[in-house]
Design a protein around this nucleic acid. Structure first.
Lengths: 193, 193
DNA sequence: ATCGACATGTAATCAGTTACATGATTTT
DNA sequence: AAAATCATGTAACTGATTACATGTCGAT
């Protein structure tokens, strides 16, 4: 017989996957909301309009806390850090089974139905895809080099806050490279035509 | 000064990515809603509660049409096919730029913050991940073999309705293999610990 | 002079998930 | 006897995107 749940001081603020992703980010390094959106791009694309209100809710729950940093000629920023409570629920969450990954990719739908149009359009799509992933990869390799210069051996230490992000960066480059390889493989199949 | 848009006979039924994915599916092969959910799993995970109403809307717009198939001891099913109008808007859509792919993967968040817990949990997560992708891959290879037996040379013909799905299956196996390779690579980094 | 980066927020809408609802057949 | 598969649908809710809102600085 649940009552007054919404009026309760400890009102249930839904901890969803993105909420934990934000905690994981600020665990590694104190961040502004703006910065979080950029760092998140690596494995959980979210818009600022989703991140800012969520951060406020996480602060309400006292999983994060912020300090104001005044800037000259730039808008002030709120730098968030993880609290002890935040660290605890994040650690507990890591011990739960992760949900199955979700991928949504319009390009694949277009390839699925490419037989309806032309092999010319197929080639176009594939070349654009190669371009896209090549750009991603170039940027990614740059970021890997930056991390390597800044933290070197720490990156291979599973107890370092940098370990996770570095491993995930490595994963992404592998997958991006494989995407490019596949595109070339398909282009080969289209040659005869 | 838009007026009466909602009362108009040709009321705007929003054509979203999933709608086109459904059209692409029925273009290849007549399908029931139930079957579409399963086939879609390859690159656009959707629940039946999203698919059935969308199919009804697509039929309203006359992009698909269905016939009833009575079954003994099983519920009747609605087999959908693509109409000429459906084929046209699908072809037109293929000539538009695809949206950037979206990935959401809780496992990666857990790896990101793994330094907070233990390398034991890290190993556990990676082994479960390997198991998951190995299972996916086994199933995927089976489906590839099934397609190869059924259509053989058609699969490499860009004008065959089977071409797209086959290419996408091949892509998925490559990516899944690479996911597994990466997991083993990370496990190596964890050995010293 | 216009555009992109920096920086934070809210409101409206659309997309997607979970739960409700039903029911026979086959497999474990 | 219970669970999974086949088969279709709706209602309520949560998650995510687009649009609205504001403002400075540096580069082109």
């Amino acid at each position: 017989m649940k009552r007054e749940v919404k009026n309760c001081i400890f009102a249930e603020i839904e901890m969803n996957s993105l909420a934990y992703a934000l905690l994981a980010m600020v665990a590694r390094k104190d961040c502004s909301g703006y910065e979080l959106v950029q760092l998140l791009e690596l494995f959980w694309q979210a818009k600022h309009s989703q991140v800012y209100p969520l951060l406020a809710k996480l602060e309400q729950k006292q999983y994060v806390a912020h300090r104001l940093v005044k800037q000259n000629g730039r808008p002030d920023k709120k730098i968030y850090r993880l609290t002890e409570q935040g660290r605890e629920i994040l650690s507990a969450w890591i011990h739960e089974e992760p949900a199955v990954p979700v991928v949504r990719d319009e390009f694949l739908t277009k390839i699925y139905a490419i037989w309806l149009t032309s092999t010319k359009r197929a080639r176009e799509l594939l070349h654009e895809r190669i371009q896209y992933f090549t750009d991603m990869l170039t940027d990614r390799l740059l970021k890997i080099r930056e991390m390597e210069e800044r933290w070197s051996d720490d990156l291979y230490d599973p107890h370092s806050p940098q370990f996770g992000r570095y491993m995930i960066l490595q994963r992404k480059t592998r997958l991006e490279q494989e995407e490019i390889n596949w595109c070339h493989w398909v282009l080969e199949r289209l040659k005869k035509d």
